[in-house]
Amino acid sequence: MVPPLVLDIDGTLTTRDHRIDPRVFELLPAWDAPVVFATGKAFPYPVALAHFLGRPQLVVAENGGVVYDGQETTLAGDPDACRAVVETFRERGGDLGWGDGDTVNRWRETEIAVSIDADERLLREVVAASGADVEVVDTGYAYHVKSSGVNKGKGLALLADSLGVTTDSFVAIGDSENDVSTFERAGESYAVANADPDAQAAADRVLAEGFMDGTASVLAALREDSDPA
Rank of each mutant, 00 (worst) to 15 (best):
V67R: 02
D21L: 09
V104H: 02
E135Q: 14
S147Y: 01
G155L: 07
D198W: 00
S226E: 08
D10P: 03
G210S: 02
T139S: 13
S189N: 00
A221I: 14
A30G: 12
T103C: 09
F89S: 03
G155C: 03
D21N: 13
S181N: 13
D133S: 09
G174W: 01
A84K: 09
A81D: 10
S217T: 11
D78Q: 01
D168R: 10
V171S: 07
V150R: 01
M1K: 14
S148M: 07
V60P: 11
T12W: 05
D80Q: 03
T74V: 12
V67N: 11
A142K: 04
A81N: 06
E91T: 02
V47T: 10
D117G: 15
A48H: 06
V134Y: 03
V137A: 15
C82R: 00
N63A: 07
T182R: 02
G54C: 06
D175T: 15
V6N: 06
V165E: 10
D117I: 15
M212Y: 14
V136D: 08
S147V: 01
F25I: 01
E111Y: 15
G214Y: 12
A33M: 04
V137C: 13
R55F: 00
L5H: 12
G11Q: 07
R92V: 06
T88D: 14
E224L: 07
A61H: 01
F37I: 08
D119S: 10
A132W: 13
V114Q: 05
G153V: 03
H51P: 08
R16V: 13
Q57F: 09
E177D: 10
A113I: 01
V35M: 10
V36H: 01
T110E: 00
G140E: 01
F52S: 11
R83W: 12
V171T: 11
E111M: 14
T110G: 02
A220D: 15
L122Y: 04
V206G: 05
L13I: 15
A208W: 10
D80G: 05
T110R: 01
D102S: 11
L122F: 05
D32I: 00
D133A: 11
A186C: 07
V47R: 12
E26A: 13
F211L: 12
I9F: 08
V127A: 06
A221G: 09
G164Q: 05
G11P: 07
E87K: 08
F170M: 14
A48K: 09
L27M: 14
G64Q: 03
R16C: 04
V165N: 13
V127P: 08
V171Y: 08
F89P: 00
G131R: 07
A193W: 12
D138H: 06
G155N: 02
V86N: 10
S148Q: 05
A48D: 11
T14L: 03
Y143G: 12
L28K: 08
A193H: 08
V165W: 07
A61N: 04
T15Q: 15
R83G: 13
K41P: 01
A220Y: 09
R83P: 05
F183G: 04
T110A: 01
E177C: 03
P3E: 15
F183S: 10
D198I: 02
K152Q: 09
